[in-house]
Design a protein around this nucleic acid. Sequence first.
DNA 1: TTAAACTTTCAATAATTATTGAAAGTTTAT
DNA 2: ATAAACTTTCAATAATTATTGAAAGTTTAA
Lengths: 167, 167
Amino acid sequence: MNYNEAKMKFVSTWGSLGTLWGINKAMAQIQALLFISTKPLSMEDIMEELKISRGNTSMNLRQLMDWGIVTKEIIPGERKEYFTTEKDVQELARVIAKERSRREIQPVIKVLKEVSSIQDDGTEKTRELIKQTKALHDLTQTADDMINKLVTQKQNWITKSVLKLIK
Amino acid sequence: MNYNEAKMKFVSTWGSLGTLWGINKAMAQIQALLFISTKPLSMEDIMEELKISRGNTSMNLRQLMDWGIVTKEIIPGERKEYFTTEKDVQELARVIAKERSRREIQPVIKVLKEVSSIQDDGTEKTRELIKQTKALHDLTQTADDMINKLVTQKQNWITKSVLKLIK
DNA sequence: TTAAACTTTCAATAATTATTGAAAGTTTAT
DNA sequence: ATAAACTTTCAATAATTATTGAAAGTTTAA
């Protein structure tokens, strides 16, 4: 496998994985491309490499900037805008986890809290609803806390020591 | 909020959350419905409650059984098949995490390993590709290990003690 | 063995989501 | 103030994914 094959394989795999971390294919591919680039890329560069339209590139770059994982670079003397992504995987993971928690997990926790707090009328079905949604609430809350805690740590040693502990 | 409102709210919220754990809306809604039901439900019951077609119900129940979170119950004297879901949230989380790891994370780890193992030809771009995909490989592998380890624990105490440790 | 009761399959269709491309908008140089 | 260089917006279209419903398949009872 040569450089170009490897690059294409990485970009497309990372792209199709997008759904796993809650972003779309083009967005994930753009991020992947920037992630392995040795220098900032222009919209033109990205369009060309990924064979996607200008509009698509523009919209997805905007979204990546909203997520806080891509930033504009102004290159003196150049009219075009250039883009780079966060290069530290730990930091990248931190930002993604934080955003997903905020956008998706928090709203669900809120609903679970509401639903599990309805008046217990003593019927079996109400009891079951309360019991099960409460259990789900606790689990979701705990998982969310853990993700946030783990991911907030800047150093890697803690992750390693946790792994060792629970092995 | 009365029982029916709460039930609907839970089912539809859990349904739209489906994407987060990698299953589709109908699948997630069926699971949600079973999760708060006090007794096994028939296909008829599910179709009626969720207003979805027979075919859709059948296919999604099958998928839930493939995932291992829904099982058929044979009720003596009854011709219809009845279904129940795993009621323990910890066990549910375990099964889901395991399946997602197997279906989605493992293949990505494999590709990252391949890509990061290409011949280093000494050029800057190849070096960057190797370096970055290797970092991603390590991170993904570590995260996957952690999820599996944590989720394998049957007891909750370990989760709590880990949380305490990293607070 | 037949027929009723039920489930599965799958081609057709609908719903959703992503992508394009060109017009409108913005910035910069002269 | 103008025009060239560039970016954004968004209605139209394409691609993908989910859903239906009816025909085919299966199981059970008599």
